[in-house]
Design a protein around this nucleic acid. Sequence first.
DNA 1: TCCCGGAATTGATATTTATCAACATTATCA
DNA 2: TGATAATGTTGATAAATATCAATTCCGGGA
Lengths: 230, 230
Amino acid sequence: MTKFHHTLNCKDCKSKGIIFKSLCNEELDMINQNRFEVSFKAGEIMFKQGTPSPHFLCLTKGLAKIYIEGRGKNLILALVKPVEYIFGPGVYVDNRHHYSAAAVEDSTACLVDAATYKLLIRQNPDFADEFIKRVSNQAIYNFEQVISLTQKQMPGRIADALIYLSEFVYDSNPFEMSLSRQDLADISGMSKESAIRILKDFKDEEILSIDGNSINILNPRLLKQISETG
Amino acid sequence: MTKFHHTLNCKDCKSKGIIFKSLCNEELDMINQNRFEVSFKAGEIMFKQGTPSPHFLCLTKGLAKIYIEGRGKNLILALVKPVEYIFGPGVYVDNRHHYSAAAVEDSTACLVDAATYKLLIRQNPDFADEFIKRVSNQAIYNFEQVISLTQKQMPGRIADALIYLSEFVYDSNPFEMSLSRQDLADISGMSKESAIRILKDFKDEEILSIDGNSINILNPRLLKQISETG
DNA sequence: TCCCGGAATTGATATTTATCAACATTATCA
DNA sequence: TGATAATGTTGATAAATATCAATTCCGGGA
């Protein structure tokens, strides 16, 4: 994990997230003065559940997973790609991370002091609205996730994960999956072996073609149907 | 469902939630002018997933459940008691309810126009902070819930539900459960029959005594241990 | 290049959980 | 009050899923 100051100013940052659109130049300066950039190699942990949480993290390059560490198993809540940010609920509660984050691919991120961020939320109602909107969207997504995990059977859950990967994470089909099978299992809340078996079933039914980590969704319609019928 | 204007002003309301503590009299007046009170009989639906969501709802009497309607099954996300409020994430996203709510006991609630509420969040940073804090707490609770539902086996999940009921909902032990067995199952993400069986096991092991809907936790330490070991 | 360790795969088996059906109990209401 | 429906309970069975063990595959160093 290398720490270094970025030469760019936030005002000029090409990878500035849309979250910052409601901030004026002065406010962006404030963020700029309280930030530093960090890079992570694939596999490295970015922060760990239970540790103090003093930062807002904006992913500028790579891919990260955020996951809850349960009893032996992990549950991946979401994958985060540029330019999205991670700002856990602990910041407003107990200053602790309630989930861990790790780099799935080599990544870089901007860290901003949480206090600065909270101050801006108080100062700028548009920014606050944007933030609440974002938190709300996340909550809604979590509802769908819980229903998927608790009420769908394994094929439905794997279908959900594959659709999520293709449509929201890699934004393409076919796609090269930078996740391990274990990660896929951790997204879908099942054992690695089960995840592999379902993938194979999908391959046998010619819903997918799989070559190592390259996945091609051959029958998106059927996959969506499996997702819906659970 | 009866609609009537409450005689009291919000300023004097005995059951005013702590959320309102950061509002000045003028702001409370604003809420007061945009609110009405409704009462629900036990079992009545307060609002339904998918319908437009123009209100902030504050429960002043009774007990309500909020639940997601999945494929045939429901998943109860939380029980709401006085004086807590329900303000779904849809208000900031698509103006739709993303979960349903129903009265478990005879209840009354104050409904406040959502636009008014959102305006106050923009106006009053302390109020906004309180609101975000509350949303954050909810998110953290949801994490624990997801882990319970996806990584614990049935006895652990029922233990979690019973602890939740005793410690957070009814605030007592023994307690009279106003929920049905189906509700208990919907909290724990399992079939009604399974929930009943686990209850019986706990009774046989003398962790609980059960008489109809009266539940007495005889061995809280062991119950907690079952919750933790899953 | 060869070897090693971790990931992926497969099969056999055990465990967990749901479903179905039958019956008991309780609440409701005319 | 008695009939009737809803809720609760139990047992038998089937389905879903995890676990364990044994290979195989693959990439990165010495």
